[in-house]
Design a binder for these strands. Structure first.
Length: 513
RNA sequence: GAGGACGUAGCUCAGUCGGUAGAGCAACGGACUUUUAAUCCGUAGGUCCUGGGUUCGAGUCCCAGCGUCCUCACCA
């Protein structure tokens, strides 16, 4: 770093601003590379012919000789990027620069740029951001290059980059120093750009179906809508305890009472739970509500959201995730909860004694637990991991779904589905419960065996009042966006798709050089 | 929260039985106007995560702590 500090001073002594200025009129490197067909060869007879396509082992010198000599002429271009590779052959340097569309080689000769500019070039380092004016041509080996006429320093770097080609490998540093990971690991940069494309695609699909996006409160006085422990905070002026939201559900449903018939929110929720390859304390959730729909309308919507998102990043219906090969063509399979339970455990899902025996046999405790809680623990323990899918699991036991409408002909079954892919729950949807009296009753019903903090049954009087004012029958959907991105970008850890996952505070002093 | 693995140069990693701290890349000096991870010659670079302990002697063995990863638990 001392060497870079010395070069920084040299640059200042040359009267050059090491931190750069606005740099107008540059093109992205990807666009510049696409202009290679504009390169022509001017024969000694003055005739213009097409330059050769680049192939491995191309020897421009003999190619030129075969045509009786002459010179390449190419378009004038301006590029900007980070120096990622550097080959110094004395009075001639080859510098590879990279922007977010690609990399290109600069051909930089002392005679071509002049003494003055060369003094700057001698003080450049890997990692520095530079601009270039030059002619797009090919070298003797046929490598597409910008033949520099002038190099501009756009920003000096003080810290050295990670090993070239290898990039940052240490997963801690990749997360903690995400800027370096993004700058030097192209596949990481691409993954996060794909995340953006997926999110854009989701919004587009919803917008095309007349859904409107809203912004609900993230500070809640009652952390409802899901079963999770909340983060707590405090508002000083109001002297009020508050929770960071754990779900989007209850405010979106209030909006449906207000006549926003198709509404969604795509935003951050916070759960004060453990961290794992599938869990980050803050994560991105999509919730969608459609008046006069039901959980089956949400299945169709879920399918088009995923199909379009896959298309948006250039994937088809066959994708791989780790070792798994998946067919995500629609429609996805639809299987009832009880059927899957019976299939994977061999237990009659309605035989209480057999369920309890089975639960105990696989090491679950059953004492004091509601039979549906036991049943669901068996399902989570033995069935979910087998659902490679994608598969919609439908018709859950009503008692574990306090926000869901019951089936008309069977009040013990809730109109709900969860979508599983590779054993991971990607989405969860209901036909929304809109009966205020039943909702109030369910908020009061604490299922045996579930601690209060893990229950969805948190009384929210204002929400019940909203229902008394008429919420239309509706379908509602929740999608774990980070997990969807994991699936579509073949990422095994949620931290690979969250730019800045939660880490412990750094103990050392980052200011120390 | 429990268990396991890991932590050595800016980065990626070796380090044998406990006996002077190593390599590649990056950096610095030199040669080179068509290189492709350029090449060649030379130089410099260390809180071996931290703190204790055992030992004549610890990167190495023991204990504690910190951090990351993995598995499990909770959750989506």
């Amino acid at each position: 770093m001392a060497a870079r500090r010395a070069k920084l001073k040299n640059i200042c002594d040359l009267g050059i601003d090491p931190w750069g200025q606005r740099f107008d009129g540059r093109s992205f490197i990807g666009e510049i590379r696409a202009r290679q067909y504009e390169i022509k060869f001017k024969t000694s007879a003055g005739e213009l012919i097409d330059a050769p396509e680049f192939v491995e082992g191309l020897d421009m010198r003999s190619w030129k000789q075969e045509r009786g000599g002459g010179d390449l002429v190419g378009p004038a271009v301006r590029a900007a990027g980070r120096i990622v590779l550097h080959r110094d052959t004395g009075k001639l340097q080859f510098i590879d620069i990279q922007d977010w569309t690609g990399t290109i080689q600069l051909f930089v000769g002392k005679n071509q740029v002049g003494e003055e500019n060369w003094k700057l070039i001698e003080n450049l380092d890997l990692g520095d951001l530079i601009g270039v004016d030059g002619e797009l041509k090919m070298t003797m080996r046929g490598e597409l290059s910008i033949f520099a006429e002038k190099i501009y320093l756009l920003t000096k770097t003080i810290e050295p980059p990670p090993a070239k080609h290898v990039g940052l490998v240490d997963p801690e540093l990749r997360q903690r120093l995400r800027y370096i990971d993004l700058a030097y690991n192209a596949e990481s940069r691409q993954r996060f750009l794909n995340r953006t494309k997926i999110v854009q695609s989701i919004r587009r699909t919803l917008d095309e179906n007349q859904f409107v996006e809203i912004e609900g409160p993230t500070l809640h006085s009652i952390a409802g809508g899901a079963a999770a422990r909340p983060f707590e905070t405090f508002h000083n002026a109001l002297g009020m305890n508050l929770f960071l939201r754990i779900a989007l559900e209850l405010h979106l449903k209030r909006l449906m009472v207000g006549g926003l018939e198709r509404v969604y929110e795509l935003g951050r929720v916070y759960r004060n739970e453990g961290i794992s390859p599938r869990h980050n304390p803050e994560f991105t959730m999509l919730e969608v509500y459609q008046a006069f729909g039901d959980y089956k309308s949400m299945m169709d919507l879920t399918e088009s959201l995923i199909a379009n998102a896959s298309k948006a990043i250039g994937l088809g219906t066959q994708i791989s995730w780790g070792e798994q090969q998946l067919d995500i063509s629609i429609p996805f399979a639809r299987r009832p909860y009880h059927e899957l339970l019976a299939e994977h455990t061999g237990v009659d899902p309605f035989a209480e004694r057999a369920l309890k025996d089975y639960a105990q046999a696989i090491g679950l405790t059953v004492a004091g637990k509601h039979i549906d809680v036991i049943k669901n623990e068996i399902f989570e323990e033995r069935v979910e991991e087998k659902l490679v899918g994608p598969v919609f699991v439908t018709d859950y036991p009503a008692s574990i779904c306090p926000l869901t409408k019951r089936k008309q002909d069977d009040p013990t079954i809730a109109e709900r589905f969860e979508l599983f892919v590779c054993g991971i729950e990607l989405a969860n949807a209901y036909t929304e419960l809109n009966d205020p009296d039943l909702q109030q009753k369910l908020f009061k019903t604490q299922l045996a065996g579930l601690p209060a903090e893990e229950s969805m049954a948190k009384m929210d009087h204002d929400f019940v009042r909203a229902l008394r004012n008429g919420m239309p029958p509706a379908g509602g959907l929740g999608v774990g966006i980070d997990r969807l991105v994991m699936l579509l970008t073949n990422s095994q850890s949620i931290r690979d798709v969250i730019l800045f996952p939660l880490l412990r505070a750094e103990t050392g002093n980052p200011e120390h050089e």
